[in-house]
Simulated assay, not measured.
Amino acid sequence: MNVTRLDEKEVLDRLDALAGLMADTVDGGASIGFLGPLDHAEATAWWKERAAGVAAGSLAIWAAHDVERVVGTVSLAFPDKPNSRHRAELVKLMVHRDARGRGLGRRLLTTAEEAAVAAGVTLLHLDTETDSPAEHLYTTAGWTRSGVIPDYAADPAGVLRPTTLYFKQLGAAAPTR
């Protein structure tokens, strides 16, 4: 299983595979911003819009792929404000349902954390559906739970769910982006 950082062209070249992963993740019940069932064309359009952020440097995307397909992703979203260059948001950590339970989520999380340190990021933050399986990953990886917001987002079935906010402080390097 390879994990690689995607450039703009690679995002565009892998639109179909990225959309397939996203649809599988939503169909599996993960609350990642979409209602189910997720239309493949909608997922493809969403990923296509991300390519510009990758080109601009405001978004970094890593994909895990086996021989045949993309089976996981993680991204870092970098703020555009001068007073925020020390932080980034961890977004769209996804693992295909049939690739779970093998440490891929942790590997993707570690990849993003190490890349953040290399970029001079000293603070990461994220939100995830409260009581989701992802919470175990974040707490065991040293993330700090900072609070819960009720009725934050609808899950794939359309039911409003709370979200839990997490952060992780990293090494104290100067921002280099």
Score class of each variant (00 low, 15 high):
M1K: 05
M1F: 06
R5Q: 10
D7Q: 13
E8G: 10
K9G: 08
K9L: 06
V11Q: 11
V11E: 13
L12C: 11
D13V: 03
D13C: 08
D13R: 13
R14A: 05
L18F: 12
L18G: 12
G20H: 12
M22N: 06
D24H: 03
D24V: 03
G29P: 14
G29K: 14
A30D: 09
A30P: 04
S31Y: 11
I32E: 08
I32F: 14
F34T: 03
L38C: 02
A41L: 09
E42P: 07
A43C: 06
A43I: 01
W46S: 03
E49C: 07
R50T: 08
A51V: 00
A51N: 08
A52I: 06
A52F: 13
G53T: 03
V54M: 07
A55N: 14
A55P: 14
A56S: 10
G57K: 08
S58E: 12
S58C: 04
A60D: 07
I61H: 12
A63N: 05
A63W: 01
A64K: 01
V67K: 15
R69D: 06
R69Q: 10
V70K: 01
V71S: 10
L76P: 02
A77P: 02
F78Q: 03
F78D: 03
P79W: 09
D80M: 02
K81Q: 04
K81H: 10
N83I: 00
S84P: 05
S84E: 14
R85N: 10
R85Y: 10
H86C: 04
V91W: 12
V91E: 13
V95C: 15
H96W: 11
R100W: 14
L104I: 05
R106C: 07
L108T: 12
L109A: 09
L109R: 05
T110Y: 13
T111Q: 07
A112I: 00
E113D: 10
E113V: 03
E113I: 00
A115C: 02
A116P: 04
A116E: 01
A119V: 00
G120R: 03
V121I: 00
T122L: 10
L123T: 02
H125Q: 13
H125V: 00
D127A: 07
T128E: 02
E129W: 14
S132R: 12
P133E: 08
P133K: 11
A134E: 05
L137G: 06
L137V: 00
L137K: 03
Y138W: 07
Y138Q: 00
T139N: 06
T140P: 10
T140E: 13
W143A: 05
T144I: 09
T144E: 12
T144Y: 09
R145E: 09
S146I: 00
G147S: 06
V148E: 15
V148W: 15
D151F: 09
A153L: 12
A154P: 06
A157C: 06
L160D: 08
R161S: 11
T163P: 11
L165M: 04
Y166Q: 04
Y166G: 05
F167H: 14
Q169I: 02
Q169R: 15
L170H: 14
A172K: 12
A172R: 15
A173W: 15
R177N: 04
R177T: 01
